[in-house]
């Protein structure tokens, strides 16, 4: 027990938590934006995979790191646009369209990677984002070396949480976006474009997801691997429910989740071979399912989530 307490109070532990959390933070934020506008985006796994590869590939080809982030965001937005076209104006099943987008995103990613690097057996590496300690704040014990010594992309992700929260709750666009997710007919009567707002939300949300994927290859690691996402996108969908569709709670949920994940990694080292390592690796997935079960009763889904809107139809 003392070991665990010491671990939880160490700066290295919290550094790991933040590093693990960031892809979840961005992915959850992106999914939240889509769902708030009434569109479930099951393309998230594929979009994050594409973002991870596209961002990394751009940097590997000589672009600088921020250009890599932009490339990832654009690639994500492009796949998001596909999902948006299928589900908003065409009103197709959001479940099946999302699975299609995930299958397409993943396969296109692997195809492209193999096209460009046909012979790569060990994944080539890039020079990723370096930690960027904030002068002064990084001197604080525990908090300093963890929270205030992150990479610039991690700070940007935290800034995006605040930005999305601000846009959702403090701007007319955000109000409109929430409205089309709750009552599209009423939004239309107010003169808002349901199609435009929903498509915009899906594209922007998908861009965020893709940047979440790129965080893995540009900040957390320095290379792209096949099956790198490993279900992170699906976990984000569970986190959105856990967060009751609120950006602040999404950040909290992602941090909590990452905390368990980091703890699980350390426990694995402490417990050693007494338990098979797979038991520990299962924990994040089981934890997500548990979170869904606990929150399901209280889940306040956006009223029009998964309901396609066609003008003049009831």
């Amino acid at each position: 027990m003392a070991e665990i307490l010491e671990l939880v109070l160490s700066a290295a532990f919290w550094t790991a938590v933040l590093r693990i959390a960031m892809p979840y933070v961005l992915g959850t934020l992106g999914e939240l934006l889509c769902e708030r506008a009434g569109v479930l985006n099951l393309g998230i796994e594929g979009i994050m995979t594409l973002g991870a590869m596209a961002g990394w590939m751009a940097v590997y080809q000589g672009a600088d790191l921020w250009t890599g982030v932009a490339v990832a965001a654009l690639a994500g937005a492009a796949l998001g646009l596909l999902h948006a076209v299928l589900t908003v104006p065409l009103g197709l099943s959001q479940h099946v369209a999302g699975i299609g987008v995930t299958l397409l995103g993943t396969s296109l990613t692997y195809f492209t990677y193999r096209m460009v690097l046909p012979q790569a057996t060990t994944p080539p590496t890039i020079e990723p984002f370096r930690p960027w300690p904030i002068p002064g704040l990084s001197e604080i014990p525990v908090l300093g070396p963890s929270l205030f010594s992150q990479t610039p992309l991690a700070y940007a992700a935290l800034g995006l949480v605040a930005l999305v929260a601000y846009v959702l709750y403090r701007t007319p666009v955000g109000l409109g976006l929430r409205m089309v997710g709750e009552n599209p007919a009423a939004a239309e009567a107010q003169g808002l474009s349901v199609t435009g707002l929903r498509m915009g939300a899906v594209c922007a949300g998908s861009a965020l997801m893709a940047v979440g994927g790129a965080f893995l290859t540009l900040s957390a690691f320095n290379a792209f691997f096949f099956n790198m996402l490993n279900g992170r996108g699906w976990i984000c969908i569970a986190l959105v429910v856990f967060a009751s569709w609120r950006p602040g709670k999404a950040l909290l949920g992602a941090l909590l989740f990452a905390g368990f994940d980091a703890l699980q990694l350390r426990l694995q080292q402490i417990v050693g071979p007494a338990l098979p390592y797979q038991v520990f690796l299962m924990m994040p997935y089981l934890l997500s399912i548990l979170a869904l079960v606990v929150m399901a009763r209280r889940a306040a889904y956006p009223k029009a989530l998964m309901v396609p809107y066609r003008k003049g139809e009831r």
């Binding site: 299928l86 197709l92 099946v96 299609g100 299958l103 397409l104 993943t106 396969s107 296109l108 195809f111």
Partner: peptide, 13 residues
């Protein structure tokens, strides 16, 4: 995998 995924999306349309 790409052909199969694109087939799914085309089929939806």
């Amino acid at each position: 995998d790409v052909i199969v995924a694109v087939s799914l999306i085309c089929m939806l349309v």
